[in-house]
Design a protein around this nucleic acid. Structure first.
Lengths: 158, 158
DNA sequence: TTTGAAATACACAATGA
DNA sequence: TCATTGTGTATTTCAAA
């Protein structure tokens, strides 16, 4: 699928505010509402838009502490890496994970209620597992995500 | 602000799908549409809901490579850290950053078009700056974010 | 606070350019 | 592929409980 300027603009607007009404999206990009609706439907279908998510303030959920847990595995077979990924996806403390090339195989962004919770979680979810060779926990002072499209819109023709 | 079970449920639904219609949100949590609207308005106002963002497939934007750049600063004065944060926020290649306790002061999640772009960017945006003592770049094989609320909903009374 | 009802605005589909 | 139009549905406001 290739995208023109209007598609990029729709993506940019939806990244900024995923709840913007279709009518307003249409106005801002300069097409009819039905056109915007159809384009967005297709972007969704083509999985260019992967989802829409609300960002929730961690403190409101009782989260006072966030950390990155860097993990080294004992082996790097496909089966072991895949099963470790699946394990990560099931943990409610895991906000996100990175599978990396480098000394650390994974970096896991975790959110916990307090230091006790972090210790218990790091031990039971990671350190205790046989495929984990080494873990290192780094406290997060601040985490911030951008809400702009990461790449400048290339001036693609229509 | 404290939240009851209905608020948590609204947050959970909006985290899963930020474009869910208000009427459906209301039905699912068992209140009238006008009530759902009012509750969400207040959650937004109290900044419990910080925003709504579409997730865009990186490849559709011409991004083929993502990396974490770990950065150590030369000093750790407030002024220097703050100005470095500001610098990060202005870079379109930066998807997110972590300010950490630990040897690495920052980890920056970056998205680039190719390896050349990564090298140029790492050099010009980071390595070249006088406040940066050391950088290390780690390729990302996979990045994945959860779309569930991180903490199990505490059974708070209403 | 929540609600139902009224008015307003919107989404969506069909049609035709 | 887009805009127009029409219809049904949703959003939003507000007065009352």
């Amino acid at each position: 699928m290739d995208l023109d300027r209007i598609d990029f603009e729709l993506l940019r607007l939806l990244r900024k505010n995923a709840r913007m009404a279709n009518k307003e999206l249409a106005e801002r990009v300069g097409v009819a509402p039905s056109t915007a609706l159809e384009r967005i439907r297709r972007l969704r279908e083509a999985r260019v838009i992967q989802g829409y998510h609300a960002d929730i303030q961690p403190k409101a959920l009782g989260i006072t502490l966030q950390a990155i847990v860097a993990i080294r595995l004992t082996q790097h077979t496909r089966a072991l890496v895949d099963s470790f990924r699946e394990h990560l996806l099931q943990l409610s403390e895991v906000l996100a994970f990175y599978h990396l090339a480098g000394a650390d195989d994974f970096q896991v962004h975790v959110a916990v209620q307090d230091a006790d919770h972090l210790r218990d979680f790091a031990l039971s979810a990671f350190a205790q597992r046989p495929e984990v060779a080494h873990i290192e926990t780094r406290l997060i002072f601040e985490y911030r995500r951008g809400d702009e499209l990461p790449i400048y819109v290339q001036s693609a023709d229509d």
